[in-house]
Amino acid sequence: MNPILLTPLDLLIAASLVLIDAIVSIQLGLRLHRQLIVAAIRCTVQLLLVGYLLRFVFRIDTPLLTLGLILLMVAIAGREVAARPEKKLARYGNQIAGLSAVALATFVTATFALATALRPHPWFSARYAIPLAGIMLGNALNAASLSLDALLSGVLRERAAIEAQLALGVRFRDATKPLIRTAVRRGILPVINVMSAAGIVTLPGIMTGQILAGLSPIEAVKYQILLMFLLAGANGIAAVGSAYFAMARLTDARERLRVDFLS
């Protein structure tokens, strides 16, 4: 079955729905109509650009260009993770923790999927590697930033408890374990919610897209299950990674708790 291809006219007709929102905004005095139109135009332009960029990259399909694009995506995601928490670690600690966590999560899970379940030819084919890395990154970003935020906001609250243990001769990694646990839990909970609700509360976007594109529901579901498991892995790695990387930046060679590295 071939997908039903959309024409520009189809999209234009759909855009009239955005106009309904704009009219609501004007009628209720929400003052949102300008932002709404700008957002709709931005969305259109950004997605078209990405579409053309991906078509170009898929057509050339060299491993170097694919890797370059993925690295760029990882860098942007890392920056987002670093910016989210209220607290910032000294010496680019947030950036380093965020970047390492999302890079590790994305590369491990995307390579894993490309090498085991998907196995495209060649295995680094841009058509598979880039969308896969994109989905992993979006989720790893979420998990890493939640975990990092929980850790950095918790460390000041738990300072007395951690230092009391250090003063009793407990090792830094043992004294901070409860805080790491809290942070990782915060990062992993969303993916558990998503997996539990999948198909009942929500029809996941990827699956819906594939069904609309003509794939049989069973095949689409299989893809979605694979993705869910990959996402669970990416979330776990990202949450654990950002918590440990950040905690490593909060101590020194004498196993002190260095809250002065946090601002």
């Binding site: 738990e158 300072r159 007395a160 408890a161 951690i162 230092e163 009391a164 243990q165 003063a167 009793l168 001769g169 004294a175 409860p178």
Partner: peptide, 13 residues
């Protein structure tokens, strides 16, 4: 462990 510090408001975990 040998040179033990006890804070004025000790922490609990």
């Amino acid at each position: 462990r040998r040179v033990a510090y006890l804070a004025a408001e000790p922490g609990w975990w």
